[in-house]
Design a protein around this nucleic acid. Structure first.
Length: 827
DNA sequence: AGCACGCCGACT
DNA sequence: GTCGGCGTGCTC
């Protein structure tokens, strides 16, 4: 009798532990398990988790008793070996665990845990499928409960080994993971015209058309019907719904459609316009490139021969997108996959639509706030390298994690955007930098695009690490806006200020409105007043959980903490000295809105910031209203700077440039240059040059001068000198350590100890410990330590050292309760 | 990161 | 006397 081998699997679990977990594999799955298959495993005292198999072996661990794999979810891998390499790079470089990377990479619906909610599949028809006794038991619980997590389901049904059954029920589309509907991005609906059911039969349809033809009074209806049939016809002779707007565009009148509906031939329905499926019939050829665009396109291709990564530095409105489209087209022709990265907010814009018009269903949109089932669908489609679907992925930062196997090109649009850097849950990766590494792994080319490149990127391009292509001509000959300064200091002295508005700005606003045009006011701060201040003792109200002064929101009449969400009622008297002389310092979008309305009640003023776009559809609604000229002045935070083009914006006002410039952060000037240039780019139309007015107390500030002259290179040259002088990126690499603890004493001691340990290895490269700007967040005191390192230090060694130091740090009992956050390349 | 186990204060 | 606070240590 041959001896049976026992197999074990090493599994990645979504926990911040730098260790592999070994499980024993039941015999029944020995032949089906693969590296890259998901398994459900017991983890901890009473929980289940989804893990990913990284290794199959026969070495039984000696020091502990191994648990069994509970359920094998995939008979074929869902993650490629290439992805494992990429994940390890992310984990190593950004100092997170591989489990955390997995967590960021996999769509939620891939992960089944004890707390996963399941529900009955909406398409499930009762009686259609035979169910076992156990399946029926599960089903019945869900009939009553609608949704239920797996832990409860085990309790209610008494089935101990529930995962394999759930897995089958998912596959048979009886159940699905339950997902809360996301309000902000609910599916877009449109009215569609459909053929009535009985006319789907070709004979009936022919008869119907004949009848229409016979009756001269129904000529219009016949015409409408023929239009409809032409638009709706698909290859196999069936008819699909046609958008009503499309029929109207073809000249079909509402009246004839209504008649057809009355005669029982057609009907209309509100249908969801799918974001990922696109009608093949709309595919059209990309526009031809202008001469300048064509030149840039050729240069990019030349750069790609020598460089993995190339920067396309194109001024706003130079038509970078058209160049991207042509590059994508080339990749598609040679059968390659394309990844197109965009900042989170830009994903809601016209760009998606435009690409879908060119590439139809080859375009897939991958966005954390889209439906999770759609995400799984895209994942699987990319994984199987389906040549007809989702060859082009348009996505936010997390789309670098898709299972590409044949990637030819990665485009990172608006490369300088800070939202490419993940902040909160670890891994704190930068999608642009990760994309470059991904490109190298795939031998794919990477194109970075921006009108205002990050210093790092431009530095690399200048130093021949990346290719560089400049596109300085605006498409269609539209001129860059003219930029002026409103000297706040002077106007204050002359008393010509109208509250926060200079008379210069107001005069220009009135001119703009008289000409029937629109204006955008930019103030990068929401709320009403960021600071209340007692005139007597200079006390300010602060958050009880964070070391942050509270922002007053007038509309809700609340004092809010923008860091933890703490809310309290406004106070009339100083809590310290009891005086009632509280004055407001600074201003946010809300106050701008209020005062503009107060001064000009005739203007239609709206505000676009986090507070006004939280509600369902609010963002899209505001934009449409603005587009339709139902708003004269749109006041907004940086949300309005992102990739939106409005036809009628003639004036852009930057209300407080100084606030941007004087932030205590080494990137403040860079951010200011980028933000102001971006808002400025919103001004101007086909026939008239736009105007930008920047309110500042220091109109001679060199950064503002460079903005005014549209002189990126000049800005870059000065700023890069500063960076070099003060040992900042791109010359030096930064790693931030943040320690958190509820007890300030313990934190202080811990910070000093960690600093000492770091200094033993890194010496003068260690800065701190220092109280960060916000020294308390959500009841935790914070302490910061910075590491500034020469670029040529071995990254691997640096991180090995840091690992060792952290282990040494946590071996001290009193440090165990201190939380440590490491941020590599902080933004 | 969760989460169970375990040791000290304010309540029936 | 207990219920529950969150400090500590573990997860194959």
């Amino acid at each position: 009798l041959a001896e049976r081998k026992t197999y074990f699997v090493d599994v990645i679990l979504p926990v911040p532990i730098h260790r592999a977990f070994t499980y024993r594999l039941p015999q029944e799955w020995e032949n089906d398990v693969h590296v890259g298959s998901r398994v459900v495993v017991p983890f901890g005292k009473s929980k289940f988790q989804t893990g990913l198999v990284t290794k199959i072996h026969e070495q039984a661990p000696a020091e502990y008793t191994v648990k069994y794999v509970e359920c094998l979810l995939d008979e074929t891998p869902i993650v490629t070996t290439g992805q494992f390499h990429f994940w390890s790079w992310i984990a190593g470089y950004y100092m997170s665990s591989i489990g955390e990377v997995m967590n960021a990479a996999l769509p939620t619906n891939f992960k089944i845990a004890s707390e996963t909610m399941v529900a009955i599949h909406p398409d499930f028809e009762p009686g259609e499928q035979d169910m076992t006794e156990q399946e029926t038991a599960i089903f019945e619980v869900l009939v009553i409960q609608e949704k239920c997590d797996l832990k409860q389901l085990i309790e209610r049904t008494g089935i101990t080994s529930i995962h394999p059954i759930i897995k089958k029920m998912f596959q048979r589309r009886i159940l699905l993971p339950f997902e809360e509907l996301n309000d902000r991005f609910t599916p877009k609906t449109a009215t569609y015209v459909l053929l009535n059911e009985e006319l789907q039969d070709p004979e009936k349809l022919a008869e119907c058309l004949y009848n229409l033809e016979q009756n001269k009074r129904q000529a219009k209806q016949l015409e409408a019907m023929l239009q409809f049939l032409a638009l709706g016809q698909v290859e196999n002779g069936d008819f699909q719904p046609v958008p009503k707007t499309q029929l109207v565009a073809q000249g079909v009148s509402q009246a004839s459609m209504a008649s057809l509906e009355r005669n029982g031939i057609i009907h209309t329905e509100k249908l969801i316009v799918s974001r990922i499926n696109f009608d093949k019939q709309h595919v059209r050829e990309p526009e031809n490139l202008s001469e300048a665009q064509h030149k840039a396109y050729d240069e990019i291709n030349i750069c790609f021969q020598t460089f993995n990564t190339t920067l396309l530095h194109g001024v706003t409105g130079s038509g970078k997108t058209e160049i991207y489209v042509h590059l994508i087209q080339e990749q598609i022709k040679s059968g390659k996959q394309v990844l197109f990265l965009l900042p989170e907010i830009a994903l809601t814009t016209q760009l998606i639509q435009r690409l879908q018009e060119y590439f139809g269903e080859l375009v897939g949109v991958y966005h954390s706030r889209f439906n999770q089932n759609e995400r799984v669908e895209i994942w699987n489609s990319v994984l199987e390298n389906n040549p007809h679907k989702f060859r082009i992925i348009l996505g936010a930062r997390s789309s670098v994690f898709l299972p590409f196997s044949d990637l030819g090109l990665i485009i990172v649009d608006e490369e300088h955007e800070t939202s490419y850097k993940q902040h909160d849950p670890s891994p704190r990766y930068h999608a642009r930098d990760a994309a470059i590494v991904l490109g190298i792994m795939h031998k794919a080319k990477v194109l970075l695009g921006s009108a205002t490149p990050s210093l790092e990127t431009y530095f690399n391009a200048k130093n021949k690490k990346y290719g560089l292509v400049e596109l300085s001509e605006r498409y269609g000959g539209i001129r860059l806006p003219e930029i002026f300064f409103a000297d706040i200091k002077k106007e204050r002295a002359q008393q010509t200020m109208h509250s926060h508005f200079s008379s210069f700005l107001m005069e220009e606003l009135m001119k703009t409105i008289e000409e029937g045009q629109q204006a955008i006011f930019f103030q990068n701060r929401r709320g009403y007043t960021p600071l209340w201040n007692c005139e007597v003792c200079s006390w300010t109200p602060k958050c009880t959980n964070c070391d942050v002064s509270l922002t007053y929101h007038k509309h809700s009449n609340q004092l809010k903490c923008h860091y933890c969400g703490f809310v309290t009622a406004p106070i009339g008297t100083c809590a310290q000295c009891g005086s009632n002389r509280l004055r407001m310092i600074g201003f946010g979008t809300e106050k701008i809105e209020d005062e503009l309305i107060l001064q000009h009640p005739e203007l239609r003023v709206k505000r676009l910031d986090l507070d006004t776009t939280r509600a369902k559809h609010a963002y899209a609604k505001l934009l449409t209203e603005f587009e339709e000229k139902k708003i004269d002045v749109l006041i907004g935070t940086q949300m309005i700077t992102k990739g939106l083009d409005f036809e009628h914006v003639q004036l852009v006002g930057v209300l407080d440039a100084d606030m941007l410039l004087h932030r205590p952060d080494f990137r403040a000037f860079e951010r200011s240059y980028q933000l102001i240039s971006q808002v400025a780019g919103r001004a101007g139309r086909k026939h008239k040059r736009g105007k930008v007015i920047i309110q500042t107390a220091d109109p001679d500030h060199w950064v503002l001068r460079r903005v005014m002259e549209h002189d990126y290179l000049g800005f870059y040259n000065s700023e890069i000198m500063e960076r070099k002088h003060f040992l900042y990126p791109p010359f030096y690499k930064l790693i931030d350590f943040t320690l958190k603890h509820k007890d300030e004493k313990i934190l202080q001691q811990g910070s000093l100890n960690l600093t000492r340990l770091l200094k033993e290895v890194f010496h003068e490269r260690v800065m701190g410990p220092e109280k960060p700007l916000i020294s308390r967040l959500q009841q935790y005191f914070l302490m910061g330590i910075k590491l500034k390192m020469e670029k040529d230090l071995s990254d691997k060694k640096v991180k090995e050292h840091i690992r060792g130091i952290i282990d040494a740090f946590y071996s001290v009992p009193s440090h165990k309760s201190i939380r440590l956050v490491i941020n590599v390349d902080p933004y």
